[in-house]
Design a protein around this nucleic acid. Sequence first.
DNA 1: TCCGGTAAGATACTAGACGTATCTTACCGC
DNA 2: GCGGTAAGATACGTCTAGTATCTTACCGGA
Lengths: 219, 219
Amino acid sequence: MSSSDTEGVEKSGTHRRRGATLEQALLDAVWEELKEVGYYNLTFDSVAARAGTSKAVLYRRWANRLELTQAAMRAHRPLISGKTPDTGSLRGDVIALLEGMMMGMNDLQPDIVWGVIMDAINDDARRAYIRETLMNDSQRAFLQRRIHEINVAAMTAVLKQAEARGEVTVNAVPLRVMTLPFDLARYELLLTGRPLTHEAIIEMVDEVFLPLIMRSKPQ
Amino acid sequence: MSSSDTEGVEKSGTHRRRGATLEQALLDAVWEELKEVGYYNLTFDSVAARAGTSKAVLYRRWANRLELTQAAMRAHRPLISGKTPDTGSLRGDVIALLEGMMMGMNDLQPDIVWGVIMDAINDDARRAYIRETLMNDSQRAFLQRRIHEINVAAMTAVLKQAEARGEVTVNAVPLRVMTLPFDLARYELLLTGRPLTHEAIIEMVDEVFLPLIMRSKPQ
DNA sequence: TCCGGTAAGATACTAGACGTATCTTACCGC
DNA sequence: GCGGTAAGATACGTCTAGTATCTTACCGGA
């Protein structure tokens, strides 16, 4: 099996891939493997075999399955642009934010979502735990900040627009409420391993978020 | 190492434990091991060694680490009684429910919480996934139901009391709102690996849950 | 055009954990 | 006291992680 028949990879005879070409081939192999066997069954050996190379080449770049998978995800699904949606209403904007968050998560098996999120949480949190215990605790948990800060920023921007339209008073909105849609969405994603449906997003916005926000309507 | 010196376990010479005695000793060993090395480093070998027995004895009872750990948790932390709190106000009752949910989770390492929750989710969800795809989907996802049903029941009971006091109209409360406090609590638990503080619970109830509920005040 | 460093690719190996199987022997109920 | 059951010991086979070593292709610089 050393020469010609490893999946769809062109690795003819004695040619040796390098640099970006190789890297891309590796990440492609990871991606294929992910789609085929899922996260928990993805091994360095299987990826190496599929890519027509050896584990060492992988280990030279990524230390473990999480890093490997994250790299592949990053390569195959660039993060959503930070652009603030502007649909003309707060409701529309928040829905757009959530849709954006879920975008491109449909072709993944549930266990990839679980695995990655879980390993990431463990990984980050372990680091956070160390930081927290070594540093003074005047700073909030690293994990919390890291996960929330981008959401808070996005929501703040959207709320500012709404304030400009006279829909709401921003500084009357508690932090916990600002991140609520994201937290709920992430929770449900974690629970079901599947992205939220459009209907679920609408429901969440109309039944939970907007009612809360509308308490802080300017009078 | 076959006779006398395995940790603090009394396993003198030729005595052979049986039934409930043995079972308790096994679960104690699991518990100790959990506290010492955490969930991900807990192995059947290490537990067996600590209990002064062999893996086979464990495997005869529990199929994997999750089952083993859940059994130990069940033994050492019986689930909160299903009793409905009655503090005289909806606010107090909901806080009591959440406190109860968090109760007894303080002496655990974060990774135990993560591990158990995660393995449980994976396990349940895998089953759910199979069910869902094999059966018609007139029924909701098994996982959702299973996790939510007990919360919905508890919350319904508390809301009924509140209705009797004239605080709220139960059937005006969407399901999503009913489970909201539990979902948020569980999410935060998952994220931080630590039970919510009393302050966080209060905040959540006052800033999120009650405002939503109070929309459905009877007039 | 050669030459030397770097990394690709192959292979082998250790270590840990899972899960299974087998065997002896203590205990318990009848 | 006898026989079935399960405790406890031990030994595997397998899988995966991660490391180490070695050869050799490639690339860039002189």
